[in-house]
């Protein structure tokens, strides 16, 4: 989906945070979530995703850097900003002794929403039939759906969802993906969705940010990330420096005693092999190495 405005929905500049233990949790995080897009915020457990999202919601005091949401500084316009967004942070925050409707009613007036909105979001979450059943008797999946309904209550322009698929069964995950896609495409809701599992979000996101040990190790479009996954031809030779200059046109890289070049087809592999042999360079081994998204994610998050 193409952004309808140039102002990013979320922009952080040099965001840093550390807890009282003294260990920095975030270092210079420059997050940029384009308006109208679905942004997958990925990283292994403990990478700082929830801390970042908590900072975006003003739940933690800003220690270093700046946060802008819809171009407005969060520090001075927090109330205005919060009215435009819905959020789900970590586990569902619900009152177990109340019904689904009552849980939503608590926030409906705060967001100045009409009475019908409660019914609408219950229907969106598929919970309109729960009646007087108390939330403590809901399954984890139902609680997660109610938490998402709660996040949708203010008709948000921006949704911040922290691991929203936790507790959902495969069908629930598919339903959630469809819901997020519809919200994004039909209602132009910008969505920031965090996960530690790339496969869960890669199907719906247009942009990706990968956080590892508090640092952004990748940020860009999904296509840019996909390009990094292309297969490579890995070559071991008797003279790497000479081979590098010979293969310059293929933009080779030298790493750990091997050369690698992006592979297009088998003919390129044959051509490269012949070229090296013709120039008296011995080819000890030549072969392709596939890197899928999952491997790339692991590489990016362990390399840092």
């Amino acid at each position: 989906m193409i952004s309808n405005t140039t102002t990013p929905a979320i922009r952080t500049i040099g965001l840093g945070h550390q807890f009282s233990s003294g260990t920095p949790t975030l270092h210079e995080v420059n997050l940029e979530v384009p308006h109208g897009e679905i942004y997958g915020f990925l990283g292994p457990n403990g990478s700082g995703k929830t801390t970042t999202l908590s900072l975006l919601l003003g739940l933690y005091k800003l220690q270093r850097g700046k946060i802008e949401i819809f171009g407005q500084p969060l520090a001075s316009k927090r109330m205005e900003v919060l009215k435009k967004l819905g959020s789900l942070i970590e586990s569902p925050s619900l009152y177990g002794h109340l019904t689904a409707r009552e849980n939503l009613e608590i926030y409906r007036a705060i967001y100045e929403m009409p009475r019908e909105r409660t019914r609408e979001v219950l229907a969106i979450a598929g919970l309109e039939e729960t009646g007087s059943k108390k939330v403590k008797n809901f399954s984890l999946g139902m609680k997660q759906r109610l938490a998402i309904a709660q996040a949708l209550l203010p008709r948000p322009q921006l949704l911040i969802l922290d691991e929203p698929t936790n507790g959902l069964d495969p069908n629930g995950i598919i339903d959630l993906r469809e819901l997020l896609r519809t919200l994004n495409q039909t209602h132009e809701v910008t969505i920031l969705i965090s996960s530690h599992i790339l496969a869960e979000v890669e199907k719906i996101v247009s942009h990706v940010g990968i956080l590892s040990k508090g640092k952004m190790v990748f940020q860009g479009t999904r296509e840019q990330l996909m390009k990094m996954t292309s297969a490579k031809l890995v070559i071991r030779t008797s003279n790497d420096d000479k081979a590098l200059s010979l293969l310059e046109v293929y933009k080779p890289e030298k790493q750990n005693g091997t050369l690698s070049v992006p592979i297009v087809d088998d003919y390129r592999a044959g051509h490269i092999n012949r070229l090296l042999v013709d120039h008296n360079i011995q080819v000890f081994s030549i072969g392709t190495q596939e890197t899928n998204l999952e491997q790339l994610f692991i590489q990016l998050t362990t390399a840092s």
Partner: peptide
């Protein structure tokens, strides 16, 4: 466990 949601609302 609802303090976070309370404080993340306007």
């Amino acid at each position: 466990n609802t303090w976070k949601q309370v404080l993340a609302s306007p």
